[in-house]
Amino acid sequence: MENFFLEETSKTPKLSFDVSTGKFLMSGRSIPENSIEFYKPLFEWLDEYVKKPCPKTTFDIKLEYFNTSSSKCLVEIFRRLEKIKDAEIVINWFYEEDDEDMQESGEDFRELIDIPIVMHMIAN
């Protein structure tokens, strides 16, 4: 299984999913024209990953902005990660000090998802 990597653009986030270390990163903006088309390859990659995950998976999310359909795709990503059993998984949700919206969004996800989401404030 190969790593999953996509470079950041003005409308799509950087996606870096390293299968050997279990370190995942999503950063930037997520406002694709068609969210499902953009995230579908990642869903498929995750479907494979959850079958044989790393002993520890760390997922860092450093999003500046995302649209509503991207938030649904985020739920889908988290639902896939919820399937990981017998392995440690943690989601780190990063938000700027003055970005209350992103902080509250992270808290909303924390309430819904059955994986520990750790909030990290980035000081300006």
Partner: peptide
């Protein structure tokens, strides 16, 4: 229902932003 609540909340927040 949980997801709808989250999406509504995120969407409202984005609108405010």
């Amino acid at each position: 229902l949980g997801e709808v609540k989250l999406l509504t909340s995120v969407s409202d927040r984005l609108q405010n932003k």
